[in-house]
C-alpha cells in the first residue's frame, strides 16, 4: 500500500503510458493514434519531472542575500530543462504527424486506417 500511495505519481505515469501505448497500437483512427502518442509522451514528461521533485524544496534560483547554499533546498533543475527540449521535440513530431494526417485526408477523404487500406487495395 505504501508503495502505491507513496509513489502515486510514478503509477500515474505508468498508467498514462500504457493508455497512450494502447491507443497508438490498437486504435484504427489516425487522429486517435496521434492523441495516444501525445499521452505517451506526456507520461514521459511527467516521469522526468517526478524524478526531480523534492518535498519542501524550491526552484534553484540563487538570491544574492542568501549566503549559505544548501543543495537539499532546491529541486534538480536539469530534468526540467531536458523536458523543455523534449517538449520541443514532441511538438515538432506532433506537427509533422498532423501535416501527414492532413495530406492523408486530402488524398483519401477519411482518417480511418482500415478505409485507407481498403482504398489502396482497390487501386491495385
Amino acid at each position: 500500500m505504501e508503495i502505491i500511495i507513496g509513489k502515486y505519481n510514478y503509477w500515474i505515469y505508468i498508467a498514462l503510458m500504457m493508455i497512450g501505448f494502447y491507443a497508438m497500437i490498437a486504435k484504427r483512427n489516425l487522429v486517435k493514434k496521434i492523441v495516444g502518442m501525445n499521452i505517451f509522451q506526456t507520461a514521459i514528461i511527467l516521469y522526468f519531472i517526478s524524478t526531480a521533485y523534492k518535498k519542501n524544496a524550491t526552484i534553484p534560483i540563487l538570491i544574492k542575500s542568501q549566503e549559505v547554499i544548501d543543495v537539499t533546498q532546491y529541486v534538480n533543475p536539469l530534468p526540467h530543462v531536458l523536458m523543455l527540449t523534449a517538449i520541443v521535440v514532441m511538438v515538432s513530431t506532433f506537427g509533422v504527424a498532423l501535416a501527414v494526417i492532413v495530406m492523408l485526408y486530402k488524398k483519401y477523404k477519411t482518417l480511418e486506417e482500415d478505409e485507407i487500406i481498403e482504398i489502396l487495395r482497390e487501386k491495385k
Partner: peptide, 19 residues
C-alpha cells in the same frame, strides 16, 4: 501515393522507439 500512410506508420513506430 502510398508513401504518406507509410510515413505515418513510421512516425508512430519511430516515436515509440524514441520514447
Amino acid at each position: 501515393n502510398r508513401s504518406v500512410l507509410a510515413s505515418f506508420n513510421y512516425i508512430i513506430m519511430g516515436t515509440i522507439g524514441a520514447c
